[in-house]
Design a protein around this nucleic acid. Structure first.
Length: 810
RNA sequence: ACCCGGAUGGCGAAACCGGUAGACGCGAGGGACUUAAAAUCCCUUAACUGAAAGGUUGUGCGGGUUCGAGUCCCGCUCCGGGUACCA
């Protein structure tokens, strides 16, 4: 066997470029897209190509994903791991504004810089299938996706609030509003109403929720989605307005507390407000409505102080018949439920605060253990009342809360005052952006034909180059200033018509990109049916949990829509999703303002890409993240140096050491299990432990002792592993060599150390056969005076856990 | 406020189903090699106590369950993240 001489010492500066070049030349990282027998689609969240370049956080995420992909390849799958750029969006646009450049020129530069950095990172990426969401050949299909929703009636237009900065005279994205202030000038943001496009994701709420039961996703991510969808079962109840035929409908989850409803509250913009308001109160009500309208959504949510005003009107409580006042207040949101509530100040903290502020009456209708109908409410509402019973509630007195809830709802339903309903927190997805840097929404408005979708044959609707892409005081999209662009012939009647000038949300670009990758080079179709059938859904998706709700939920939604339209035959895009942790520095998130940002280039230069990759994975559990400290890298680099020199010096003479080989088989099992579970830190630790065994002193390793270790280390340190693999006489890539198998027989011990406790305290240990009996173990333990000296009385009890411990209780 | 995480040596961390707490790594101390340094290799390294053998204490705090608790239960404190008046 011809073995190449390895240089001394290990020099990543020559080894790493050599293998990156060879991978590119040989197409090592390219997946057999059309012929894979065991396809495995490994996906990582694609980056936004910032001008600052690759961040350690990106590298941490990508490396963890790459290790998983390489591991699956070693397990015998044909792995497809693509990567691309989420290049459209407000981030890129704002940055361009800041530096006075044009996004259409700046973005390709940033992408090129990112690409250069990523190619150094040694990822097993099939770069043939790269996507860039800001390229017409990509967003042509983003627009196509929009049309599929439109066709199914899932895209609609309605007036909705946007954030408006009165100083900059521009629409702000939610990301540009901080604590209710414009992030650029600090002015309080107001709300304005504009016609916007929405996707009817709310119609999919139950499906999105139910599938979480069986999806193999990180529990934290599933919980975040459940909370976001916010399903809540309750009832809609009617309160007749006094002296009117109108009814106020409220949503409540606590119909059982209706006897305690002492007033109603409508959202300020509730349509019944003008109708019910009395003449005496009209000025006060109008003033209040104006004041709340001026406040933006976020500022309104960040203050908890209650405000409100009486309308002058009253309604009948359907249970008690009592006339109760109708108020308006901004703590009631028009967007949720019916935009109106029945206030139960005794049993809802918000109502409690409001009632106390305005001197409204309280009635206790639930009494906890040890309380009665007259127990006072002290300084807060009684809300933790799951084991409470009803009081002051007529025929329902004495019932427990859950039973009463059902019975009151049924009773009110029976007399026409209510119905059981389910509400969701999830709102429809507003995809309109009054901005420039995104795909134009493919719609044309014609005076004669109305809203006409752009025919698929006319896609893409190209985003034009306009020098004045900056939002201005018109409050509309920059494209609306370009008549030469928006004036078009109506596709249906040919008359002059007008294009939609809003662009779509960046989240739409990323809600379907995983479908595009396998077909990235297809120009005639968004995703090829054959490729899609072979590769999707995604087998493993790894990304940050900051996308737990928006991106991941939108992707699921779009997938369901495409399934319903018959374009694909699965309705969940990501079979398995794992959220990785965040990498912090000195206990805080890395940010430029804190000055604790790590430039990965510097570290890759100094220590080598492999060492840096491995260090990032070693500093903590991948799913939790960790604290970056540069001192730690040297330990990982030392391990790689030791691996290198062990391989270099390995001998083929004689037989490998039996004890070392036993340790090897344990290590193979442990590294395999840990890597599968993304427990990279402990996988690396066990490889180090094995290395310590192999190299104890300056012992020369046998090639059979180190060869499998090269395979185990390959996902973590791919360049070095290839170099070692070649040095051990192999022509092909280590990634085609398979994952070493462990021999279960090598894992079985004949003797174990049995821990001996006396009264639960460890007093020693005895070496015993694995199948030793309790009696024999006890005899052995008692023979040891350092143990038996603690057995100062009669043995009352002996606890024996085979292979683990013996506890003598006296 | 609510929903998730988390808290373990000087530091990053490990510990399976309740069974030797601190694997692995960093740092520190000592030693070998060297003219010397670097590199490499070896040993020590939770705290207290003791000459040593050994002993006692110890996983954020207070209780509990158990032969046995970092791990389970009850009640808190602090830190990180998410959501934020969702009726």
């Amino acid at each position: 066997m011809a073995e190449t001489e390895l240089p001394t010492p290990y020099t990543p500066a020559t080894v790493e470029p050599k293998w990156q070049q060879r991978w590119a030349d040989r197409g090592t990282n390219n997946a057999p897209l059309d012929g894979a027998a065991r396809p495995f689609y490994a996906l990582m969240m694609f980056p936004y190509p910032s001008a600052e370049g690759l961040h350690v956080g990106n590298l941490f995420a990508f490396t963890g994903s790459d290790i998983s992909a390489r591991f699956h390849r070693l397990l015998g799958h044909q792995v497809f791991q693509p990567l691309g750029y989420d290049a459209f969006g407000i981030h890129s646009e704002n940055y361009a504004l800041k530096v006075g450049a044009h996004p259409m020129e700046l973005t390709p530069r940033n992408v090129a810089n990112f690409q250069r950095q990523l190619e150094r990172a040694g990822l097993m990426v099939d770069w043939r299938q790269k996507v860039d969401t800001s390229r017409p050949e990509y967003y042509k299909w983003t627009q196509w996706v929009f049309l599929q929703l439109h066709k199914q009636g899932l895209a609609y237009r309605k007036a909705a609030a946007v954030n408006w900065c009165p100083t900059d005279k521009t629409v702000l994205a939610n990301e540009q509003v901080e604590n209710g202030l414009c992030e650029r000038c600090g002015t309080a943001v107001e709300q304005r109403f504009l016609e916007q496009w929405f996707f009817r994701i709310s119609a999919f709420a139950d499906r999105l929720l139910d599938h979480l039961e069986w999806l193999d996703w990180s529990p934290v991510t599933k919980q975040a989605q459940r909370n976001w969808i916010g399903k809540s079962q309750g009832a809609e109840l009617s309160f007749g307005v006094v002296g009117s035929t109108e009814c106020v409908r409220v949503f409540t989850t606590r119909a059982d507390t209706i006897y305690g409803a002492t007033y109603l509250v409508l959202a300020p913009e509730h349509p019944l407000v003008p109708t019910v308001t009395t003449d005496e109160q009209r000025d006060a009500v109008t003033a209040y409505q104006d004041a709340t309208k001026k406040q933006d959504l976020i500022a309104r949510k960040s203050t908890r102080e209650k405000t409100g005003v009486f309308t002058g009107a009253h309604a009948h409580n359907p249970a008690t018949g009592v006339q109760i006042p109708i108020w308006i207040a901004d703590y009631v949101l028009m967007e949720y439920g019916t935009g109106a509530i029945m206030a139960v100040p005794g049993h809802d903290q918000r109502d409690f605060e409001f009632a106390r502020l305005f001197g409204l009456p309280f009635v206790r209708v639930v009494a906890g253990p040890g309380e009665n109908a007259d127990s006072s409410l002290h300084d807060h509402a009684y809300t933790d009342d799951a084991d409470g019973r009803l009081v002051n509630s007529g025929p329902f007195d004495g019932l427990d809360v859950a039973t009463a809830n059902a019975q009151v709802t049924a009773w009110l339903a029976g007399n026409g005052h209510g119905t059981a309903v389910t509400n969701y927190r999830l709102h429809d997805w507003c995809i309109s952006r009054q901005r420039y840097w995104g795909p134009p929404i493919p719609i044309i408005y014609c005076d004669a034909c109305g809203t006409v979708p752009v025919p698929e044959s006319q896609l893409p609707v190209e985003l034009p180059f306009i020098p004045d892409f900056k939002p201005d005081d018109s409050g509309i999209s920059p494209l609306a200033r370009h008549e030469e662009w928006y004036r078009v012939a109506c596709p249906s009647c040919g008359a002059m018509a007008r294009r939609e000038t809003d662009v779509s949300d960046t989240f739409l670009d990323s809600a379907w990109y995983f479908l595009r990758y396998p077909s990235a080079q297809h120009t005639d179709v968004a995703f090829s049916p054959a490729r899609t059938a072979r590769w999707l859904p995604v087998d493993s998706y790894i990304g940050g949990n900051e996308h737990a709700v928006l991106h991941l939920l939108y992707s699921r939604f779009i997938t369901m829509v495409l399934k319903d339209a018959g374009h694909i035959d699965f309705e969940e895009p990501f079979t398995r999703f794992r959220a990785h942790g965040m990498i912090i520095r000195d206990g805080a998130k890395m940010s430029k303002s804190k000055g604790n940002v790590i430039n990965p280039d510097v570290y890759m230069e100094e220590w080598g890409t492999d060492a840096f990759r491995m260090y990032l994975m070693f500093l903590g559990p991948y799913e939790e993240g960790g604290d970056f400290r540069d001192q730690g890298i040297s330990g990982v680099r030392r391990f790689l140096d030791r691996l290198w020199s062990s391989v270099r010096d390995a001998t083929a003479e004689g037989a490998p050491d039996a004890e070392v080989m036993r340790k090897l088989h344990r290590t193979i099992r442990k590294v395999g299990e840990d890597t599968a579970n993304l427990a990279y830190n402990t996988a690396i630790a066990s490889m180090m432990e094995y290395m310590n065994t192999v190299r104890r002193g300056e012992r020369t390793a046998h090639r059979h002792e180190v060869l499998p270790l090269v395979q185990l280390a390959a996902p973590f340190a791919p360049h070095l592993a290839e170099e070692c693999w070649e040095a051990l006489g192999h022509a092909g890539s280590v990634f085609d060599a398979g994952w070493p198998a462990f021999d279960p027989a090598m894992l079985i011990d004949d003797t174990v150390d049995l821990v001996v406790q006396v009264n639960g305290k460890v007093r020693g240990k005895v070496r015993v056969a694995v199948d030793v009996t309790q009696e024999a173990a006890l005899t052995l333990a008692m023979a040891d005076t350092s143990i038996s000296k603690f057995v100062v009385a009669d043995i009352r009890k002996v606890v024996f856990v085979p292979k683990r411990l013996l506890n003598i209780v006296v």
